[in-house]
Design a protein around this nucleic acid. Structure first.
Lengths: 232, 232
DNA sequence: GGTCCATCGTTGATATATCAGATTTCAGAT
DNA sequence: ATCTGAAATCTGATATATCAACGATGGACC
């Protein structure tokens, strides 16, 4: 027990409960299209496939139902309800919430937070040249996190998180475009300026436009790759 | 079976599943303050008090957790997480989402829907004089429903519904103020105009300001009545 | 030939039992 | 008196069994 392994958390697989693990699996399956809209889910069968009992699965399905990804009809069945139209609406929801967060951030941002935003933007500019997309994604997340922190809105932040439907791969794909990387940084700078100048209306508007514009990009990308899969 | 009772739905108590019934009970208890923030919920005990097993209760608690009204710590406990700060954020979330809906409605509204909005506004004006608050509440709901319908945004509508934290009594209380009734109708007319003129930005801005203003009114009302309860 | 209804299988809803992590308690050592 | 740690206990997590509603099937009757 003198080995350094002793300090590692026990077993990653057991840190998450079965239900949250299963929740993640089913959610990804729906968002990635492995489970298509209208498809019926059988509790017993699904639990059996996953090698678990129905209890944690039922709880996971309730959460997915609350999120609007599945619809449950009593004693009839559970159906997947996620299609391109809903994906677009979820993007709009993200825009609405994220822009409200930006609005609040413009009211409450501290001098220190403004400095952190600025520092991140400088790093992004640098990252544009070195074309380290992974690093750019990380910087983007940090940037948005500073704004979230500045807003002081824990609930909105949480609600916002529920509207994320794209995985790491999709983000990587979109930011692999040179023009998109450039646009993103430009828009982030404009948002930071609005917040630093404490202009809530402007910050809100710029954030909304940014999320919608980059969101549409994602939607197009994904629908294209779906087409490819269908053709195959 | 010749009696007219035969036409009534079987037993109201059984139309809703236990879990959705319990979900409503616990949610109301949290929002009304009967269960205060930080309070610990015991699954066995709560299920026992309600005379049900833990299974439907667990599912209801998962939904409440997904909504952010409780927080579950594995094998430790379930805690209520709803306070005035979150109530305000939920109001802001409602403003963000409802204004995004109004924006979409301004893009897609039909001539027929504009006529329906106008007709409802006329009724509201009349209602102002007769001071039938119940009828006014109903008209307000119908008005917002027309906008929701015009937006064509089923998901946003659903998400919006989750941000409603005030019951019928609270709404009645706020609209019992003459000035509030007048303001509400004024604002609704302004929103309808923006949508009818198909000006998304204007509709969004007016809807946001309307929801925030009337929302603040609710927040003040409720915090006042909470103070009264505390004093008693 | 078509309609009606009884029956049975499917499936989610609910109840109950068991498992395992976390906290508390208290005896025993320092 | 304080600290340690093992046992008792509390509690959520999971598994399993049972219930009950919905729908499909098929035979009887008109």
């Amino acid at each position: 027990m003198g080995s350094e392994d002793a300090l590692l958390p026990v077993e990653p697989a057991f840190l998450k409960s079965l239900r949250s693990h299963v929740y993640g699996l089913v959610r990804d399956a729906i968002l990635s299209g492995k489970l298509k809209s209208g498809e019926k889910l059988n509790e017993r069968q699904l639990a059996g496939n996953l090698g678990i009992s129905t209890t944690p699965l039922k709880e996971a399905l309730r959460v997915l139902e609350a999120e609007g990804l599945v619809r449950s009809e009593a004693r009839r069945g559970i159906y997947v309800t996620f299609d391109p139209a809903q994906a677009e609406e979820m993007m709009l929801a993200r825009a609405a919430i994220e822009s409200m967060i930006a609005r609040q951030a413009a009211k409450r941002v501290t001098a220190e937070q403004i400095l952190r935003m600025r520092a991140l933007l400088v790093e992004m500019r640098t990252g544009l040249e070195t074309v380290d997309v992974l690093e750019l994604i990380h910087l983007n997340e940090q940037f948005h996190n500073v704004i979230h922190e500045a807003s002081g809105c824990a609930y909105l932040r949480r609600l916002q998180g529920g509207q994320n439907i794209y995985n790491h791969t999709a983000r990587l794909s979109v930011l692999s475009e040179e023009r998109e990387r450039f646009l993103a940084v430009e828009e982030h700078e404009a948002i930071a300026d609005a917040i630093a100048q404490r202009k809530p209306d402007l910050a809100e508007q710029r954030m909304r436009d940014h999320v919608i514009r980059s969101g549409e990009k994602h939607l197009i990308r994904v629908s294209q790759s779906e087409d490819q899969k269908d053709r195959a």
